[in-house]
């Protein structure tokens, strides 16, 4: 059970939050480019899945896996998208992603804090929730600056 990273996108494709824990490979492009690529892939994936489906869909796209990782996807009715990459041993974590959306309130840290403090606060909240949910993102590289975008 390893959590690699987590992306949170708003309905327009802007990355509201990004954290990573055990990421062994970077995409080889800048973070902004990577967010665009990720959002674009999910956007195409949604339309692809909607067209391929033999019957009417309810939730649509849920997850995909490659030989090394599994990407979990959750979208709220308002178009907010939560994306989490984990290892292959993780089953359906739709409810966890929903909890991250509804309880962890990423992107809602007080405005009076500076950007660095806000990122740190969000990251701590997320880690404590993931620990609770049984998906520990432990071995925190706390000496490394937290990666967060707003």
């Amino acid at each position: 059970m390893t959590v690699h990273n987590l992306y949170l996108f708003d309905r327009n494709g802007i990355c509201l939050h990004y954290s990573e824990w055990h990421r062994k490979k970077q995409a080889g492009i800048s973070k902004e480019e990577e967010f665009k690529l990720m959002y674009g892939m999910l956007f195409s994936m949604r339309s692809f899945v909607g067209k391929m489906s033999p019957v009417d869909m309810k939730d649509g796209f849920l997850a995909f896996q490659t030989s090394k990782y599994k990407l979990h996807y959750y979208e709220t009715p308002s178009g907010l998208k939560v994306v989490m990459n984990t290892d292959l041993g993780v089953g359906n974590i739709r409810d966890v992603l929903h909890q991250i959306y509804s309880n962890v309130s990423l992107g809602l840290a007080p405005q009076c804090l500076g950007p660095a403090a806000r990122r740190l606060l969000e990251r701590r909240r997320l880690e404590s929730y993931l620990l609770e949910a049984g998906l520990p993102a432990e071995e925190l590289q706390s000496n490394r600056p937290a990666m967060g975008y707003r």
């Binding site: 033999p54 869909m57 090394k68």
Partner: peptide, 12 residues
């Protein structure tokens, strides 16, 4: 990592 090996949706 390989490419997508399995893609899950609620209907297929």
């Amino acid at each position: 990592s390989s490419g997508i090996e399995m893609l899950e949706t609620d209907t297929f």
